[in-house]
Design a protein around this nucleic acid. Structure first.
Lengths: 105, 105
DNA sequence: ATAATATATGAAAATATATTCATATATAAA
DNA sequence: TTTATATATGAATATATTTTCATATATTAT
């Protein structure tokens, strides 16, 4: 399958490059959860959660299943475990101090 | 080593979530290269290349070695091959059409 | 020394993204 | 069938990031 890697990566990484969405992903890594529970657990605005879940789902980083009036989200474990582990390994091996690789100007 | 995964991921992904930087990474994936060659190959502004290489290096996604007045950059292959392959696999498996996972509003 | 080349830096301007607010829709409970 | 709950949507505002420009520094060649 012929794809442009840079473009694919841009979609992928920019979907993940957001603290609120990453917090959601970390929650979902533990267990599936509906949108309201996510909102309550993380103290995020309802509509922000909804916007962000849509982006995550579009990129197939999470799946959802409708359960009555709720919508239960779960992580795409196959992709995300690989990615989380790769980032963890990278950080442990190459980023000596908290904050080094992060967002100090 | 105790780290906050979300924060680590945020630094990592936001460093990668940029088309100009990804283009650099794709070039460096082929072979090491100095900043001027990158600039010429990609037609990017000199100072933008410099700013972006600094971000990539801070996050240890690339390394550099000074060679006279040039600076030769090379990919952190260990990390980046894993990541690129994971994204490629994800896209092939989960993102049926060009543009689906990408940036259509 | 002087000029040329490679890279770096900081700040301003341009652009993109996130967040909130008001409101809509859909489903279930009373 | 009215009310409550869960989620979605669009547009306005707030915030963050990127890009460019002017200029600085460092190294090599003349």
């Amino acid at each position: 399958m012929k794809r442009n890697l840079s473009e694919t990566c841009y979609g992928f990484f920019s979907t993940l490059a957001n603290p609120a969405r990453l917090a959601i992903m970390e929650k979902l890594r533990k267990e599936p959860m509906n949108a309201t529970t996510i909102k309550e657990n993380l103290g995020q605005e309802q509509s922000m959660v909804s916007h962000n879940l849509r982006l995550l789902e579009r990129c197939a980083l999470v799946y959802s299943e409708k359960k009555g009036r709720e919508k239960v989200y779960r992580l795409n474990i196959e992709t995300m475990e690989t990615i989380f582990k790769a980032v963890e390994n990278h950080a442990n091996k190459f980023c000596p101090k908290k904050g080094k690789c992060s967002h100090s100007k």
